[in-house]
C-alpha cells in the first residue's frame, strides 16, 4: 500500500509524456479502443520521427480512412486525413511538389491493400520517397469488424460468419514484388525494433514499407477467441525474427511461427531523382545560368 501511495505522489508534477510535442495533446485520449495496438504502432512512428533528428516541420503525415488512418489527426505535424484508399496518391502529390518534405503514410491494411491496393503497388513501382506504415489488424475495425484482404483463411468476421473462405495477401511480398526499396514486418509488441525500423525507413530515400501486426481485440479478437493479451502472447511466443528472409517465404507461418524482420533494403534512385535526371537533366545548370 505504501508503495502505491508513493506512486501517486510521484505523478504530482504536471505529467508530460516525452512524445507530447509530437502529439496533438488537446485531442487525447484518442478514439482507439482499449487494447488496440494502433496507439503503440503510432507511438513507435512518432518516436522514430523524433529520433531522426530531422526538423519537425519537414514531416508530413498522410492517412486514408479507417481506425489506423485516424493517426494523422493526432500527429502534431502537418497532417492530412484524406479519402479511403487514397493516402498514397495524395502523398505522392505532396512529395513530388515539394521533395524537401519527409512524407509518412500511416494507415491500415484495408485502406492500403484493398481499396488502395492499386495506388500502393504503383507508388512502390515508382519508388516514390514515402515511408508507409501499415497497421495490420486483419480486419475493418472502424466499421465493426468485416473481412479484409489480410484476414486469415477461416477467421471469423461479421461478413465471414462461417469463416473467411478466401486467402489473405502476403503484403511484404506484394511490396517487394512491386519494387519497394525497404520492406519490414514487426508486431506492435516488438516496439523497439519497429521504432528502429521506421527510423531507418524515414532516413532512406525511396519507397519504404513497414507492416505492423496489431491486435484489434474488440472487433477481430472477440470473434476469434483472442483477448488482447492473448494476441500479444502470440506475438511474443509464435514469432521469429529472420532479417533478410525472402518475402516469398512469409506466407502464413514458417514452422508455426510468424516471420518478422527487415526483409529487403536496397539502394535505388527515388521517383523525384529519376524525374529530374530523365526529364530535365540540364535544368539545374540552366537555372544557375
Amino acid at each position: 500500500m505504501e508503495s502505491a501511495k508513493k506512486g501517486k505522489t510521484q505523478s504530482k508534477q504536471p505529467p508530460r509524456h516525452p512524445l507530447d510535442d509530437w502529439l496533438r495533446t488537446d485531442r487525447m485520449p484518442h478514439i482507439w479502443c482499449p487494447g488496440c495496438g494502433i496507439g503503440t504502432a503510432f507511438s513507435a512512428c512518432l518516436s522514430a520521427m523524433a529520433a531522426t533528428g530531422l526538423p519537425k516541420e519537414n514531416f508530413v503525415m498522410v492517412s486514408g480512412i479507417g481506425c489506423s488512418a485516424r493517426g494523422a489527426g493526432y500527429a502534431n505535424v502537418d497532417s492530412y486525413h484524406t479519402t479511403h484508399g487514397r493516402a498514397i496518391p495524395f502523398a505522392t502529390g505532396l512529395k513530388l511538389a515539394n521533395p524537401d518534405l519527409n512524407v509518412v503514410v500511416f494507415s491500415g491494411d484495408g485502406d492500403l491493400f484493398a481499396i488502395g491496393g492499386n495506388h500502393f503497388i504503383h507508388a512502390a513501382r515508382r519508388n516514390v520517397d514515402l515511408t508507409v506504415v501499415c497497421v495490420n489488424n486483419y480486419n475493418y475495425g472502424m466499421t465493426g469488424g468485416q473481412v479484409a484482404a489480410t484476414t486469415p483463411h477461416l477467421a471469423k468476421t461479421t461478413t465471414t460468419p462461417r469463416g473467411n473462405p478466401e486467402n489473405p495477401f502476403n503484403i511484404p511480398l506484394l511490396a517487394f514484388a512491386a519494387g519497394a526499396a525497404y520492406v519490414a514486418r514487426w508486431t506492435m509488441l516488438h516496439a523497439r525494433d519497429l521504432m528502429d525500423s521506421i527510423e531507418e525507413a524515414l532516413k532512406k530515400p525511396g519507397f519504404s514499407f513497414i507492416e505492423v501486426l496489431s491486435p484489434c481485440p474488440i472487433n477481430y479478437g472477440r470473434r476469434n477467441k483472442e483477448k488482447a493479451l492473448d494476441t500479444l502472447h502470440i506475438y511474443q511466443e509464435q514469432t521469429i525474427i529472420k532479417n533478410g528472409a525472402h518475402p516469398a517465404e512469409l506466407e502464413g507461418r514458417q514452422d508455426g511461427k510468424i516471420v518478422l524482420g527487415k526483409f529487403w533494403d536496397v539502394a535505388k534512385p527515388s521517383c523525384n531523382e529519376l524525374y529530374e535526371k530523365t526529364c530535365r537533366p540540364d535544368f539545374g545548370k540552366d537555372h544557375a545560368a
Binding site: V62, T82, I88, P89, G93, L94, K95, L96, A97
Partner: peptide
C-alpha cells in the same frame, strides 16, 4: 498516375504542398 482517382488525389496533395 495509375488512374483518375489517383490523379485527383495527387493534385490535391500537390496543392497542399
Amino acid at each position: 498516375m495509375e488512374d483518375e482517382i489517383a490523379a485527383m488525389a495527387s493534385i490535391a496533395g500537390a496543392s497542399c504542398a
